[in-house]
Every structure is written in structure tokens, then in C-alpha cells.
Design a protein around this nucleic acid. Structure first.
Ligand SMILES: [Mn+2]
Ligand SMILES: [Mn+2]
Length: 558
DNA sequence: ACCACACACGCAACC
DNA sequence: GGCCAAAATG
DNA sequence: GGTTGCGTGTGTCATTTTGGC
């Protein structure tokens, strides 16, 4: 057993084989993390990849990073690799690449240009009543109907002057990517992007023990759920997909992902008008909002008594404030339908209202900034960016603390459990220590100094809480001068109570009065716009704690 | 941080 | 040849 | 007139190359 490798870092772009070095360092890291979970196929691939000639390795990585699994060799010309036919030979010998694979018409249509189709498949077109003038996509539509089967390119068009190859280890490669990133939306281009400085990441200490998956079956469950989602997106029938949805999982992370899939399937049924089927699916989903949708399904099916029973149960233990708001609207409707006395509903505060008429511009928010901003009372268009960033800066170490399972690759802008309910509790003492600095206004351990220091030390590093483009130094200084520490504490504690729900909904604008040392927030509403649920929650919160917030209604000057 | 949120906008239904 | 979207590139 | 639900459009490195129309 070799020593544990260093966590992967992007290779220098000076080397034309930089992508191969990146891939190999990722493979070494995957191996260090997952030896005990590999199956034979993965073990075999990992050990034998290194024994391939370098051009074969490089070509493999080039193909992995390109779209699809099937390529024509005249489009695989890379200066640093040399002759594709030579480079691919060892891969074919191992069976990792198939030479001249059978191609469906649709695969064929992806590989050939329209001109080549006209030149080499004229007979096929004629047999199906098509002419060369037809659009490429229309031709394919007609031919796909005909169910022509799969043949190698050498059978479809023997005269064509190039060769086609197909990777046969795509599923394995996807699995390796999944193990490395813990998700399937990031890919190996992250390395280049990081190296180019397009994205820069905090360097959290990583150890092989902190890996994305702890159990073999979890990797498969993840991949399987993902495949179901792709089938849904591809338009496959819901019933067919449902047949393959796995049962409830004891891993809460995966059960959430399963809940999201069921939620999406339910919504698809809903849009098909199958409300009863949708309701049954929503009932199985643990996704936030599933119960709310289920209630709507019951209401729309006029099952008012049943809906009321479930709504009362929900009101007794709402999953979130957002559900509470939904119930406040639903319950009166149900009571009316059932001829019951109107239910008691939580009272919402009436926000301070501002009206103005402005010359028409592209952005209402910007128009209001122009109108209100002046030297002594500057206005900034910040939405969620300011308060989230102040939180992210004050609590940087807590957010990027290397807890078990939180960080496992070098391209994360947040810990893996950011949106899980236990995010704050797992870091309770860390966050308490960060927030305690709010009690210290001045000095090098005070919150202002810490935020300024972090701003400079971490500037440009990706964080889920900090959008650097939205936070220049003048805005930061205004905020530190005019926002009371007590308000910051209340905002940050609220954010920590439910990151997913509370990181959005903050007002468009903030105006500072440095001479008075105070501020106000302004939510702008153009003609036809209205407050969203999360904005109303923010508004209620501010009203409760005496934080100044106006809603500014704009009409256009004609 | 799971092609997604996080915004504004616009239509239709309802009282 | 111009316009556009998708794919490839570092 | 107001309210409410629900579907929609916009955006993600920047630049070059490719292919369809
Ligand atoms: Mn806004
Ligand atoms: Mn607004």
C-alpha cells in the first residue's frame, strides 16, 4: 500500500498534457479514498490505466471530457497526442474502446454532417421519400420512425473516409466522477477553471477519511436516482420511471434526493392532470413543499374535509415558515368551502409604503437607486448579497471548518451539509465563537476588524455566502459603520436557523446615513410586481425587531 | 451543493 | 455569406 | 379592485470553432 497522496491540485497549463495530469491525480485521490469500496471493474481500471502508453491515456481523457461516448477519429486530432489511430489502438485491445461500433440512425446523425449524409446516404434518404434539401432534424424524425436497427459505420456507408470509435467504460467513468465530487453536476473541467483563476477555492484540509460516500450501495443509489431524473427529463412515461424508483433509504441525504425525484414525478403527473396520482406521489416525498402540494391536490379534487384534516395536522407542526404562510391562505378557503367559521390566521404587519413615479428604465431597482441615492445617503442595490456576505465573512472559519464528511474535494464553495437541518447544530460552538465577536465593536478582535481582515484575506475565494462582485469596499465600510451589531446578530441567527429558507428574500436596496449612523432597507416593486412569500417573511421579521424597511411602489411616468 | 435557485413578470381564476 | 446555437477549448 | 395560484424568462469563464439554416 502506497502513502496517501496529496489532495489533487490543478496541473500547470504550460504542460500540454495538463488535463491528463489532472485526471491522474484525481484517480490517485479516488483510490486513496475508496479502496475498500471498489468493485473488481473499478479496481481493474484504476490499476491498469497507468500502464497504458501516454498517448492512449491522453486520448481517453480527451474523450471523457467531450460530449457523448462515440467519436470519429478524424475529429480526435490533438497535437500533443499524435495520430489518433495509433493512440487508440491499446484502448481497443483492452476492450475499453470499441472500434466501428453499431450505430443507430440517431447516433449516425450526430456523427455525420448534413453534407456527408447527402453524399453517402442518398439511397437511404430516397428509400424513405426524403430529399437532400430536407432539414437534418426532420430527416432523422422520419428515419427514427422506421426502426432501422444498428449497424457499424462501415455498413451504413462503406465509402466514408474515417473511422468511428466508442468508449465502453462510460458508466464506470461517471461513477468515478461521482465518487470524487460527491455529485454529478461538477466535472473535470473544474481543474482547468481553478487553474485559470476563473474560480478560486478555499483550501480546506482534506483527508481520505472525509469522503462523499461511506457505503458502496449509496454510490449506486445516487447514480440510480440520477438516472431516473434523466429519464424524466427525456420525457419517458412516469409509470415506467416509477417502476424503477428505489424504496425509502436510511441515508437521510439520499432519502432527500429520492424525495426530490418523487416531487418532480408528482409535479409531472400534476401537469398531466392526474391529480390523484400526483397526490399519492407527493405523499411519499420528504421534499420540502411536498405536503403543501399534496394539500393543493386534495383541494383541487374537492376533497375538502380530507384536506382540512391534513392541513390542521400540518398547522400543528409546520415544516417551515413557508408552509405556515401557505396554510394561512389555504385554511380560510377550506373553511369557507366547508361552511365553517373562519380560522384564526397569523396577522401580517403592514409595511411602510413609499410611492414614486419615475421615467421608464430597464431596471426599476436601478431607477430607484438613481432617484434616492446621494453623496450623504448612498443607496446600494444588494438584495441578499450584503447580509449573506457579512455573515460569510464573520463566520468564514465556521463555514469552512473541516468537519467529517463536509469537504472532500478542492472545488467546494460550501460544506456538503450546508442545506441540511443539522448544519448549524454540528458547528454550534464554532458559530457561537464567531457571533460572540459582535459583542466587541472595536479592536482587532472586534467584528469589524474580523470582517475587514477576512474580506482582504479571502477576497475572490468562492463561498456560498459571499458574492464578491456585489461587495466593494465602500459598501462594506458603509455597512460596518451604519448597521448595528444587534441587527447583524439577529439576521445571522435567523440565517442559521434555516439556511435554505432564509438566505433569500432580503430587500433590493439599502440606504446608509453615515452622518446619523443608521440605515433603511427598501424593497422595490414595479407595476404588476408583488411581495413574494420569503420577502413577506423578511418584512415580518424586520417589523418584529424594529428594523427599518420600506416597500417602494414605482409607477412609470408616461 | 445536485438543470438550479432567486428574482420579476404576466395570465387566469376567484371573491 | 450572415446569423445563431452548441460544442470545444484553456 | 383586490387577491391568489401557477407558469414563464433570465442567468451561470470568455473565447473560438463548428454546423445548420
Ligand atoms: Mn429584487
Ligand atoms: Mn423588488
Amino acid at each position: 500500500m502506497n502513502a496517501t497522496p496529496l489532495p489533487p491540485r490543478p496541473a500547470s497549463l504550460d504542460d500540454p498534457l495538463y488535463y491528463l495530469h489532472n485526471f491522474r491525480s484525481a484517480l490517485r485521490w479516488i483510490e486513496a479514498c475508496y479502496v475498500d469500496l471498489f468493485d473488481d471493474d473499478e479496481r481493474d481500471f484504476l490499476t491498469r490505466f497507468d500502464t497504458l502508453p501516454e498517448p492512449a491515456q491522453a486520448l481517453w481523457v480527451r474523450m471523457v471530457m467531450r460530449k457523448g461516448d462515440t467519436f470519429r477519429d478524424d475529429r480526435l486530432g490533438y497535437a500533443e497526442i499524435g495520430m489518433p489511430a495509433t493512440a487508440v489502438a491499446p484502448l481497443i485491445e483492452r476492450g475499453w474502446v470499441q472500434n466501428d461500433p453499431p450505430l443507430s440512425v440517431s447516433a449516425l446523425w450526430l456523427l455525420l454532417t448534413k453534407a456527408e449524409i447527402g453524399r453517402h446516404l442518398n439511397g437511404l434518404l430516397r428509400d424513405h421519400g426524403l430529399t437532400r434539401g430536407a432539414r437534418k432534424a426532420d430527416m432523422l424524425e422520419v428515419l427514427a420512425e422506421a426502426d432501422l436497427g444498428e449497424y457499424p459505420l462501415t455498413v451504413w456507408c462503406p465509402e466514408i473516409p474515417f473511422n468511428v470509435v466508442r468508449m465502453t467504460r462510460m458508466a464506470l467513468c461517471e461513477r468515478l466522477r461521482l465518487m470524487f465530487f460527491g455529485n454529478l453536476h461538477q466535472d473535470w473541467s473544474e481543474f482547468v477553471l481553478a487553474d485559470l483563476g476563473v474560480r478560486r477555492f478555499e483550501r480546506v484540509p482534506l483527508s481520505p477519511a472525509s469522503r462523499a460516500f461511506q457505503r458502496r450501495e449509496d454510490i449506486h443509489t445516487y447514480a440510480h436516482l440520477h438516472a431516473c431524473r434523466e429519464r424524466l427529463e427525456a420525457g419517458e412515461s412516469i409509470a415506467d420511471i416509477l417502476h424503477d424508483v428505489p424504496p425509502a433509504d436510511d441515508n437521510p441525504w439520499l432519502e432527500n434526493r429520492r424525495g426530490k425525484l418523487l416531487f418532480l414525478l408528482a409535479r409531472a403527473r400534476e401537469r398531466e392532470g392526474e391529480l390523484a396520482a400526483a397526490e399519492a406521489l407527493y405523499a411519499q416525498s420528504v421534499h420540502p413543499g411536498a405536503r403543501g402540494r399534496r394539500l393543493r391536490m386534495l383541494e383541487r379534487q374537492a376533497c375538502h374535509a380530507e384536506a382540512l384534516e391534513l392541513a390542521n395536522a400540518a398547522a400543528a407542526a409546520p415544516e417551515s415558515e413557508s408552509e405556515r404562510q401557505q396554510l394561512d391562505r389555504l385554511l380560510p378557503r377550506l373553511h369557507r368551502r366547508l361552511a365553517l367559521a373562519p380560522p384564526s390566521v397569523t396577522e401580517e404587519p403592514v409595511p411602510a409604503r413609499l410611492e414614486m413615479t419615475l421615467p421608464r428604465t430597464a431596471s426599476v431597482e436601478r431607477a430607484v437607486v438613481e432617484h434616492l441615492s446621494c453623496e450623504s445617503m448612498p443607496v446600494y442595490y444588494v438584495e441578499n448579497a450584503l447580509i449573506n456576505a457579512l455573515f460569510g465573512l464573520l463566520c468564514w472559519e465556521a463555514v469552512f471548518a473541516p468537519l467529517a464528511g463536509a469537504f472532500f474535494h478542492p472545488f467546494q464553495r460550501a460544506p456538503a451539509d450546508l442545506l441540511r437541518p443539522e448544519f448549524a447544530s454540528r458547528r454550534e460552538t464554532l458559530f457561537a465563537r464567531c457571533l460572540a465577536r459582535l459583542e466587541v465593536p472595536e479592536g482587532e478582535h472586534g467584528y469589524r476588524a474580523v470582517i475587514r481582515r477576512t474580506y482582504h484575506a479571502k477576497h475572490g475565494l468562492e463561498s456560498a455566502f459571499v458574492q464578491w462582485e456585489a461587495l466593494d469596499e465602500s459598501l462594506l465600510e458603509m455597512a460596518l459603520a451604519c448597521l448595528p451589531a444587534a441587527h447583524l446578530r439577529l439576521w445571522f441567527e435567523r440565517l442559521l436557523r434555516d439556511v435554505r429558507a432564509n438566505r433569500a428574500g432580503m430587500p433590493d436596496l439599502i440606504q446608509f446615513r453615515p452622518e446619523q449612523g443608521d440605515y433603511r432597507m427598501i424593497e422595490v416593486k414595479g407595476p404588476g410586481d408583488r411581495l413574494q412569500d420569503n420577502q413577506r417573511r423578511w418584512l415580518a421579521f424586520c417589523a418584529r425587531h424594529g428594523m427599518p424597511l420600506d416597500v417602494c411602489h414605482v409607477t412609470w411616468a408616461s
